[in-house]
């Protein structure tokens, strides 16, 4: 596999019972870049990213064919250590979902689960993760307060810090800013720009301007198919497929 490719998806198809939600998807996700997935509701983009950390395993009647190659292995294989996989490929959801615990304990939760007990080591991880998530300056003097008292934007960055604390390689983000106001959204977008230096990021978004701002590559999904995948500037300035053109210009339907 190309050294610049983090995840290589080959001929991926997915069925929920008889309904085929993903149709023969092949895509190479570049390392240390932000890749945006766009498309109308129900097009399969969220289903696609959930496949990348095996979240679809939790749904009944799922059948998956094809390959998702990460670190040289097909993560769809039965012998994949799903807990380790989800540590390396973490997910941030649309609605911030902090635990009803303190800010500190939210970030320290993952490392503790993975066996880190030393207080100094935990302190370092919490501070480092909150700094990377651009939240440290706002919460450093109230780490023991409940995370639920943070604003929505701060809660979302806390969830990102919680993810970073277990040292992942890939961040999957399913509409991470759709529930946030424009200022909180811009903080998340700035954060993505910083984080891509160290992480590979895949973001699902309905906001095409957001995709245009944050992503280097963009994939357009429609009815379970990957219609077009290109550099973001190419996809938004000169899409090759008429369906992409209709969608990005808002004339779809």
């Amino acid at each position: 596999m190309d050294d610049n490719v983090e995840i290589s998806v080959k001929n991926l198809s997915l069925w929920f019972g008889k309904f085929q939600a993903l149709k023969n998807i092949s895509i190479a996700i570049p390392k240390n870049e932000v890749t945006a997935l766009i498309g109308p509701s129900g097009c399969g983009k969220s289903t696609f990213i959930k496949t990348l950390d095996r979240m679809n395993d939790l749904v009944d009647n799922v059948r998956i064919t094809g390959e998702v190659i990460y670190k040289g292995r097909n993560i769809l294989d039965d012998d994949t250590d799903v807990v380790q996989l989800r540590k390396e490929i973490g997910m941030v959801f649309q609605k911030p979902n902090p635990f009803p615990k303190s800010i500190y304990d939210n970030v320290a939760y993952g490392p503790r689960v993975h066996g880190i007990k030393d207080r100094k080591a935990l302190n370092d991880i919490v501070e480092g993760s909150l700094r990377k998530a651009a939240l440290w300056d706002e919460v450093s003097d109230r780490l023991n307060e409940s995370a639920l008292r943070l604003s929505g934007g701060q809660q979302q960055r806390l969830c990102i810090a919680r993810l970073l604390a277990v040292e992942p390689n890939v961040l999957l983000m399913d509409e991470p800013a759709s529930a946030l106001d424009p200022i909180a959204t811009s903080k998340i977008e700035d954060l993505l720009y910083e984080l891509k230096r160290e992480y590979t990021i895949i973001i699902v978004t309905h906001n095409m301007q957001q995709a245009a701002r944050v992503a280097t590559h963009t994939a357009f999904f429609l009815l379970g198919e990957l219609i077009e995948y290109a550099s973001t500037i190419d996809l938004f300035e000169r899409p090759r497929d008429k369906r992409t053109e209709d969608y990005v210009t808002g004339k779809f339907g």
Binding site: F236, E237, T244, T249
Partner: peptide, 9 residues
């Protein structure tokens, strides 16, 4: 209007 693609061009 945030025009894209050919509209933008």
């Amino acid at each position: 209007e945030q025009p894209m693609a050919k509209d933008l061009r």
